[in-house]
Structure formats: structure tokens, C-alpha cells
């Protein structure tokens, strides 16, 4: 479904990404890991459309990805993903309204009632039924991210982009969120790209894991070479899941796979 053809991304003489060549099929859950500043978030921005490749092409179904965000690609950021001035249910209703024509972004009459039903169902799925009339600042970090996910999925995007969505959450809440994301991914048949700092999380959630790193390095000019995908690992979840319960340390074999 998505194909990157020899993508480079440069800012001035600083090369961030180089020679990215990948193909992604519908329904894959791809986790992007790597050190800070290695370009994994930049790659996500290319997918999102807020950045464009300096060279090469990023294709969605054979045509270049639109160079601005649109309803094909939903996103959840680490923070600021929900509208602070709307209650939980209004956040989701606004998402329904944005999917329709109309100048004000409000819904009226029968359309609004239908949207309310859909919004309630979606919020029930992410476990926020008890907090419909709360404002985001009254929610915990985990609940806020649940809301952001509900909002992103209500319009049924084909691709869901997650930019370190659980980076600021407690470990226990993270485990809940992992379950939620996995369930939603299966149910909505999404293609997911998730940037994470947490290698274990990357292995636990993904069906495929990309490691971003620099293949070439010039100590005199660290910006001269960009990162590319150094490892593209398919993950067999059946085999891996039991070994990766959240309490245990990362198995040695996985360290070896990513730090040769």
C-alpha cells in the first residue's frame, strides 16, 4: 500500500534521512525505533504530509502522498492531541463534524444524534464512557491518550500514525494502552506506524520493526550523512509474546539483533 522510493530528507546541508526504500502492506503494524534525532519522527512527518521528501517519492497506492495532512492518515501525538476547550464527547463529535462539509464544524439535528451514538460507542470502546462531559485537563495522561485515539479512529482512517503516544505514561497504564491499541488495530484493520523510544514496546506491539540509524558516519561532519532503516525485522508475535511479558527484561537475543 505504501512505498518509499529512495527517499532523502535534507535541511540545508544537514542530511536527516537517506536512501529509504521500503514497501508496506495493508494491515501491518510497524514500529519505528532508534536513537533521538535519527529521523524516525521525520519519517512519520513525511507520512503525515507536514514534511515532504527532498528527493525520492513516497507513494500511497501508487500516487504520491498528499503534502498536507488529510483524513486518510490519523495521528496521535505524545501531547496536545486533543482540543483543550471541548469536553470528551465534544472532542469526538467535532471529529465527526470535520468529516462533513459545512463551515462551522458543528452538527445539527439528526446528523448530530447519529454522530452522538457513534461517538459514545467509540468512547465506550476506549473505556471513557464515564467521563463524557469532562474537559481534557481533568483527565489523566492515559485517559487523554485514549481520547486522542478515539478521536483519531472515529472517521476510520486507513493509516494510524502514533508519535511516541505512550512516552509520558506510567508503565502500568502503558500495558493497558498496548492492549487497547492492539485490539483496535485488529478490529479496524488499520495500518499502524508507531514511533517509540522503548525497544521492548516496539517488539511487543509491532508485526514489523524498523531500526533507524546512520550507516555512514563522518566524525568531522556529523550532519553529512543521514540515517536510514538499518534493520527491517519481521516479528512473529505468536512466538514472541510469551517471552515479552512486561515485567521481564528484554531477552538477550533482541539486544543482539539491534546492537550488533
Amino acid at each position: 500500500m505504501i512505498e518509499a522510493r529512495n527517499i532523502w530528507k535534507e535541511y540545508g546541508d544537514q542530511v536527516v534521512l537517506e536512501r529509504i526504500n521500503v514497501k508496506v502492506n495493508e494491515g501491518e503494524f510497524i514500529t519505528l525505533v532508534g536513537a533521538s534525532g535519527c529521523g524516525k519522527s521525520t519519517f512519520l512527518k513525511l507520512l503525515l504530509g507536514t514534511e515532504t521528501p527532498s528527493r525520492g517519492q513516497l507513494l500511497l497506492d501508487g500516487t504520491p502522498v498528499r503534502d498536507e495532512p488529510d483524513a486518510d492518515r490519523g495521528i496521535v501525538f505524545q501531547q496536545y492531541s486533543v482540543f483543550a476547550h471541548m469536553t470528551v464527547i465534544d472532542n469526538v463529535l467535532a471529529a465527526c463534524a470535520f468529516a462533513r462539509p459545512g463551515l462551522t464544524g458543528h452538527l445539527f439535528g439528526r446528523v448530530r444524534r447519529d454522530a452522538c451514538v457513534r461517538a459514545r460507542l467509540m468512547l465506550e470502546q476506549v473505556g471513557l464512557s464515564h467521563a463524557l462531559d469532562k474537559y481534557p485537563h481533568e483527565l489523566s495522561g492515559g485517559m487523554r491518550q485514549r481520547l486522542a485515539i478515539a478521536q483519531a479512529l472515529i472517521n476510520k482512517p486507513r493509516i494510524l500514525l502514533l508519535d511516541e503516544p505512550f512516552g509520558a505514561l506510567d508503565p502500568g497504564i502503558r500495558a493497558d494502552m498496548h492492549r487497547l491499541v492492539t485490539d483496535l488495530w485488529r478490529e479496524h484493520k488499520l495500518t499502524v506506524f508507531m514511533v517509540t523510544h522503548d525497544l521492548k514496546e516496539g517488539f511487543y506491539l509491532g508485526t514489523r520493526l524498523w531500526v533507524f540509524d546512520k550507516l555512514r558516519h563522518d566524525p568531522q561532519a556529523p550532519q553529512a550523512y543521514g540515517a536510514s532503516i538499518t534493520y527491517d525485522l519481521p516479528i512473529d508475535q505468536q512466538q514472541l509474546r510469551p517471552a515479552l511479558s512486561h515485567e521481564e527484561p528484554l531477552p538477550q537475543v533482541l539486544h543482539l539483533a539491534t546492537n550488533p
Binding site: 483524513a71 496536545y80 492531541s81 482540543f83 476547550h85 467535532a94 470535520f98 464544524g105 483519531a152
Partner: peptide
């Protein structure tokens, strides 16, 4: 992030101005 989010939900410019920016 809020502007990007609204766009990924399909919002047009007037919708973003009226529903996202103006109330805030």
C-alpha cells in the same frame, strides 16, 4: 499538533478557524 490533528480529521480551513481556534 492541534491544527495537524484537525486536518487529519478532515477539517477545512473555516472549520479549523471557527471550531478550533476561535473558541480558544
Amino acid at each position: 499538533e492541534q491544527l495537524v490533528k484537525a486536518q487529519t480529521l478532515g477539517a477545512s480551513t473555516p472549520q479549523i478557524l471557527i471550531r478550533v481556534l476561535l473558541p480558544q
